[in-house]
Design a binder for these strands. Structure first.
Length: 271
DNA sequence: CTTCGCGGCATTCACTGGAG
DNA sequence: CTCCAGTGAATGCCGCGAAG
């Protein structure tokens, strides 16, 4: 009977939707309680959603690495997680979409106001702009915006690290002092960040798959164990696109692949 | 039972600063 | 610039407890 099949199919789909919503609400609740892994899962699930909303508002295609609008969208999404009422009737995606749009509009208003102030300035001021005085102010303003975004990213990074039992303040001390050790651990972190099985293991258990990593990198178990926190810290930066802006503070930004570290390897420290 | 995380101890190695 | 000694960090080996 086609009708019966349709009813059964509908029941299954409804069941899947309920299951999805249940999982989503569970993730949101635990993220609100401070679980960084749940927050990370939520963000990963909604990457395309965030990019779609931001691109729609900006009316252009946005790139994670280049566009501040996406960072603002991401921060807004974070806010939405905290503010969302799981008991309410509103869908999370609808709620998050509204929050992201509002934040972006606020951002554009702020920018427009600033530009208007510059445009309505006197002839002399415009000359100053040409001579670089106001240009400097614009740079300072842009720096502030970047700093604001970075604060959000670092807070996110900090939460992720806590999930692995790492305090962000520990990073300088867990960072290897010897150049060769740093190179080896960096290599291990890159291998780990590129291998989905090992990455899954790390995210699932919060532990480094030492045996697999030893086999993949040829490094001894002890090296990997001792550099565990360093490896996790670097792996997070490499595997999570949200953290990609942090690469430029770690000097890993130009890293292209295995055994290609650039000129000065002595600077490959996390901080 | 296997794997992970961690600690102790002895040894090896890399880095640094001083002397020539 | 090269050599050398001192210092500190890394490594290897062994073992223990916890968790899945």
């Amino acid at each position: 009977m086609p009708t019966q099949k349709f009813v059964l199919l509908s029941i299954n789909i409804m069941g899947l939707i309920k299951l999805f919503l249940f999982n989503l609400n569970t993730l949101i609740t635990s993220a609100q309680k401070g679980d960084p892994l749940s927050r990370e899962k939520l963000i990963k699930k909604h990457y395309h959603f965030i990019a779609k909303i931001c691109s729609k508002v900006c009316k252009r295609y946005l790139i994670w690495e280049n566009d501040d609008e996406l960072s603002i969208g991401l921060l807004a999404f974070n806010e939405a997680i905290d503010a969302f009422d799981t008991a309410g009737d509103v869908k999370f995606s609808t709620f998050a979409g509204v929050v992201i749009k509002r934040r972006l509009i606020d951002y554009f208003r702020h920018q427009a106001k600033f530009e208007k102030e510059v445009l309505s300035s006197t002839f002399e001021e415009k000359n100053e702009l040409k001579t670089g005085i106001n240009a400097k102010s614009i740079n300072l303003y842009n720096d502030d915006q970047t700093k604001e975004n970075l604060v959000g990213i670092i807070t996110y990074y900090q939460d992720l690290l806590v999930g692995y039992g790492i305090d962000i303040g520990q990073l300088p001390e867990v960072s290897p002092k010897h150049r060769d050790t740093r190179e080896n651990l960096l290599q291990a972190a890159i291998v780990l960040s590129r291998n989905l099985d090992m990455l899954d293991y790390l995210q699932k258990y919060g532990q480094v798959p030492v045996k697999l990593l030893c086999a993949s990198t040829g490094l001894s178990r002890k090296i990997i164990e001792r550099g565990r926190k360093y490896i996790i810290a670097i792996t997070l930066i490499f595997s999570d696109p949200i953290l990609s802006p942090l690469k430029r503070f770690t000097n890993f930004d130009g890293y292209q692949g295995e055994k290609d570290y650039g000129e000065d390897q002595s600077n490959y420290r996390v901080v």
